[in-house]
């Protein structure tokens, strides 16, 4: 059993939901990333989504676009990101790490080469935002051969047929995009998310993480009532942007946000019955 599945089973036994922070690797500079990952775990993160910077992040809002631009200016490549995960693994053997990004860097490295290097580095899951299951056969084979979970997105527009198709090839967890829009957008509607999660739950036993539009402790707590995991990205990356050049403050502000989310998620245990 992989680290991701382990993690969700442990949380389920404890009656808790996973807190999953996202940061872009190499933002604002490569030296910040690994210490920040450790600090986020200490602040209550259960799984880390590490963004692989890409020049054309079509599904991201301005905050994460700028993060990718900062990371790329520092020359952060996919190989560098894998090296960061390997470094993280030297001190943390249990926290799952999921790479999130776009297909082209994987495509250029070659799927088999990537999957092997990712497994060696200690990567547990891969989200390629622009890769629907229809185009994913070769990458799925490569990841499967290395025991890495392919994590797919589900969206408000995803119908029953697609939910079935996607969940059939996904493992680890599935990631529900809570709104029609890009990362960091506004307009989260808890009731519509709850309805969609119920629909998804009729097709799969996989844990469901919810992301896009979760900004603070209140929205994290609200989502934790209906989902198995809460992903927070843009509001953390914003802290990096505001404090670029001051790595201590970056760590402090991000861990503060996560700690508040952790408390809010764990104290609002009155989960609505399924």
């Amino acid at each position: 059993m992989g680290r991701i599945t382990n993690c969700f089973e442990r949380l389920k036994d404890a009656g808790r939901q996973a807190l999953i922070p996202y940061v872009t690797a190499g933002d604002p500079e490569p030296a910040v990333t690994v210490p920040l990952m450790h600090a986020m775990v200490a602040a209550g993160a259960d799984i880390i989504e590490l963004g692989v910077p890409f020049s054309d992040p079509m599904a991201d809002g301005p905050v994460i676009q700028r993060a990718a631009e900062r990371a790329l200016r520092q020359g952060t490549s996919l190989r560098d990101v894998l090296a960061m995960v390997a470094e993280f693994r030297r001190q943390d053997a249990s926290t799952p790490v999921v790479l999130m990004g776009y297909l082209n860097p994987l495509e250029v490295m070659g799927y088999d080469t990537f999957a092997k290097a990712a497994a060696e580095a200690g990567v547990d899951g891969v989200i390629s935002v622009d890769l629907p299951p229809e185009e994913a056969r070769d990458l799925l084979t490569a990841l499967g051969g290395q025991g890495i979970d392919p994590i797919f997105l589900l969206a408000p527009t995803t119908d029953d047929i697609r939910i079935e198709k996607i969940c059939a090839v996904a493992s680890g967890y599935v990631y529900y995009v809570a709104l029609k829009g890009v990362t960091g957008a506004a307009g989260l509607d808890v009731q519509s998310v709850a309805d969609k999660l119920a629909q998804i739950g009729r097709h799969t036993g996989l844990p469901v993480a919810v992301g896009f539009g979760i900004k603070d402790a209140d929205s994290a707590a609200a989502m934790a009532k209906v989902a198995d995991a809460v992903v927070v990205g843009s509001s953390l990356v914003k802290k990096i942007e505001q404090n670029a050049g001051q790595s201590d403050r970056i760590t402090q502000e991000i861990t503060d946000v996560l700690a508040r989310m952790r408390v809010a998620m764990d104290t609002h245990k009155d989960r609505s019955s399924p």
């Binding site: 890769l131 629907p132 969206a155 995009v177």
Partner: peptide, 20 residues
């Protein structure tokens, strides 16, 4: 049917756009 010209083309987009 999936928009492929040999190995090229296809639909490489975020899930939100697949149904539209």
């Amino acid at each position: 049917d999936n928009g492929h010209f040999g190995p090229y083309g296809g639909r490489f987009v975020a899930e939100t756009l697949m149904v539209p």
